[in-house]
């Protein structure tokens, strides 16, 4: 190859790289300015003082983080450890882990059932799970509320059949929140499991049976390990929106069974303590980053050993 040819090739590659950069720029700019910059704004807000009518004011202070853990005596300024907020975080964590576990427990058989259907009918099963995945969360949550209310279909039917005299109170309890979370985020578990199980090579299952493995042994030693990427991705996709859930506890918790999402929204709304809300949001984000860190570590380990 002559020098001029290689120079012109290098120039063309440079031009192509430049074009790629320019094409990507608008999307990156929109997300940076209106997505990432706002995250930095709440970091800054968390170190400021609350304004009288919402918003923030100088001076800079650590008060928001202090009041996350302690309550300050208004007379002598002494700090007392108050675990109220921490307890709400622990509740949310428990709900999120519990929901993730139940979603996995029921979502795995569902996804497995779907991939073992005949190829032609599989896309219809997939559509059945895809529709709730994309449907309006508020309306789906209202639908749950609609049937578990005191005068909802379940209680009315049970009373009509004479099984109970008083309605069973299900709405505005921990039960209704966990049910709502499970129902809301189950498709987020099934879809990644489905795409993982779809790639499962059933010759390995056959090999297992040829070697006299039982059904449960084939399941636990062959199918489940092969589906691990889907399991990890599904757990993450359920865990992140459940720990920050806002709509579900808002409608099914009735304002009495708070989760972190509502707690944060409350600081920006009726409580008018934006710095505290910002600090609470950052603490939640830190938790999510820990989950993402484990995800990246698990997936990169899988690549190393895979």
């Amino acid at each position: 190859m002559s020098d001029t040819a290689s120079v012109s090739l290098a120039l063309r590659e440079k031009a192509e790289r430049r074009r790629s950069r320019l094409l990507t720029l608008p999307a990156v700019l929109v997300i940076t300015i209106f997505g990432i910059l706002p995250l930095l704004v709440i970091v800054a807000f968390s170190f400021m003082s609350p304004g009288a009518y919402g918003g923030v004011e100088p001076p800079f202070t650590l008060e928001a983080y202090v009041s996350f853990l302690f309550s300050r005596d208004i007379f002598d300024d002494t700090l007392t450890f108050t675990p109220d907020y921490v307890l709400i975080y622990l509740r949310s964590l428990t709900f999120a882990l519990g929901t993730t576990f139940v979603c996995l427990l029921l979502g795995f058989p569902t996804a497995y059932f779907m991939v073992t259907r005949p190829v032609e009918s599989r896309k219809w099963w997939l559509l059945l799970v895809t529709i709730p995945f994309w449907s309006n969360l508020l309306i789906r949550t209202y639908a749950i509320m609609f049937i578990i209310r005191d005068e909802g279909l379940i209680n009315n039917t049970l009373i009509g059949m004479g099984l109970i005299n008083q309605p069973i109170v299900m709405l505005y309890t921990n039960f209704s929140i966990v049910l709502g979370l499970f129902y809301s985020f189950l498709p987020f578990m099934v879809l990644p499991l489905y795409s993982s199980l779809e790639k499962l090579d059933f010759r390995l299952v056959e090999a297992g049976y040829d070697l006299y493995a039982t059904r449960s042994r084939v399941l636990w030693r062959i199918i489940v390990p092969m589906a691990k990427p889907g399991i990890v991705a599904g757990c993450l996709l359920v865990f992140i929106p459940t720990i920050g859930a806002y709509v579900t506890p808002l409608i099914l918790g009735g304002g009495t069974h708070l989760m972190v999402g509502d707690l944060i929204a409350q600081q920006f709304g009726s409580s008018r303590n934006w710095p505290l809300g910002a600090a609470q949001a950052i603490i939640l984000m830190a938790g999510v980053l820990v989950a993402l860190f484990f995800y990246v570590r698990t997936t990169s380990e899988a690549k190393l050993h895979g």
Partner: peptide, 28 residues
């Protein structure tokens, strides 16, 4: 390129409530 790819996917990783309060703060 990797950084750009991560930036584009970032909104999927942030819990909605955090996106909501940060957008509120930013516009305020």
């Amino acid at each position: 390129q990797t950084a750009a790819f991560m930036t584009i996917n970032l909104p999927l990783m942030v819990p909605e409530i955090i996106t909501a309060v940060s957008a509120l703060s930013f516009f305020a």
